[in-house]
Design a protein around this nucleic acid. Structure first.
Lengths: 242, 242
DNA sequence: TGCGGTGACTATACGGCGTGAAGTTTCTAT
DNA sequence: ATAGAAACTTCACGCCGTATAGTCACCGCA
């Protein structure tokens, strides 16, 4: 009634409401996931929580898988933000510290958001093959770029250990290659391979831990991870104190 | 009719039929999983395939999760067999070769049975928390024991790199500790930590590959894995040629 | 030879799921 | 004021796991 159109910004009231509802759906979905795992993300449960009908959600997401895809993108982006922040907040003078910071942020995020980790890196709940386009692949590339920065920081120390490496640019995804060659000119393909291998190393322990496979073997996954990172740094011939 | 009880071995006809049906249920379930992923394991689909009613399966497995648990145990045991065989068939004289064999067998099994890998190491399909007892934990311990054998073989070379290690027996599961101290007397806790870290290293790349995260970054996951194993051996100070 | 018990299986049912089609209400732009 | 679009509901279908009750064949024993 009063001040009808006055508070409408660049968008109309309709779109604003729509955006709010969309956000609420995603929020509720994330809450459900946090409390019941990825499989608890159910259109009917979301609708129940919102006082709506399940079918109403189809006005916002074409399908349940579409919703999950968007969620994966959001969550993956949060992860990318977390590790990027850790990387940037560590002194560039000390590659060891930076790597430890990145690795620690990765694990901490995973332990703080185990369901999110499963959503991003595990079976994203029935059927569902990865979407090949959207926020998730972009976040994945950000994480890979971060890893490449890590490898680039290590490269001056580690290069001499990779002289027999047989990697070529053609071994990697074209998009990734473009990004790497733009961001780190002069960096050889072997360093990208190193980046991916570091990813694997960190992902392995964290993944085992999140999925509960470490818990049945060790009571100190934390210590194990720190040791792994220490040995990683050592295996790159990086001095522990810069 | 003829020879009624003659061919009944140590068990009666009733039990034999029962065992056969149980086996058929598991076989069909594994087929469904192979063709449609873990989430395709459905009591109704299995029953359909067998010309039965879904409820008939409840005579053999109390619940769908029970069936899945048994399947995980079976599949995990197959994996343990595969890596054990690879380990034993490689010359004990060359730790490097043995480690490469173990790692290769692990990855090959995972790539040949991606759904099995997901069943064992991923979300085993909705809800479902790990069973804590049965064939799966036993297989897990076998794999860990295999990894410890790996670490034990590497230890003479790698020990000097782990002098600052702070691990104690109390950092590990009591059952695992007993097994290790019986099988490898004299091996310190740090070596068990090394075994678990090696597990993480191998699991990481394989897991990323099975779940399709490597595919979007590299076209040569194979080369990447071989490089990782090579660097693993190198990081343990093991001579490549014994 | 018949009979009671047991184990294998089916029939029916309930609630929950994703989703399609059709209908209803509510807002908006003309 | 009205036409139309957007938001949402209702109803329906076919999946799913699973509980309950009933049916039928086979077993050992008299």
């Amino acid at each position: 009634m009063a001040g009808t159109a006055s508070r409408a910004g660049s968008t109309g009231r309709r779109e604003r409401l729509r955006a709010e509802t969309t956000a609420e759906i995603k929020d509720v979905a994330l809450e459900l996931m946090a409390s019941g795992g990825p499989e608890a993300i159910t259109l009917r449960a979301i609708a129940r929580e919102m006082g709506m009908t399940a079918n109403a959600i189809y006005g916002y997401f074409a399908t349940r898988d579409d919703l999950v895809t968007v969620l994966i993108g959001d969550v993956y982006t949060e992860l990318a933000d977390a590790v990027d922040t850790a990387w940037e907040s560590a002194s560039a003078d000390s590659p060891a510290t930076r790597i430890q910071g990145w690795a620690g942020a990765f694990r901490n995020w995973a332990l703080a958001n185990p369901e999110g980790f499963r959503l991003v890196y595990g079976d994203p709940v029935p059927g569902y093959d990865t979407p090949h386009g959207g926020a998730a692949p972009e976040a994945a590339h950000r994480v890979c770029a971060g890893l490449t920065a890590l490898a680039a920081a290590a490269w001056p120390y580690a290069e001499h250990l990779h002289e027999s490496s047989e990697f070529a640019w053609s071994d990697f995804d074209a998009g990734l290659v473009d990004k790497v060659r733009a961001d780190f000119p002069g960096l050889p393909p072997a360093a990208v391979a190193l980046a991916l291998r570091i990813w694997g190393r960190l992902h392995g322990l964290v993944s085992l831990e999140v999925y509960g496979h470490l818990r049945t073997q060790t009571t100190s996954p934390d210590k194990l991870f720190r040791e792994e990172v220490t040995q990683l740094v050592r295996s790159l011939d990086i001095p522990l104190r810069s």
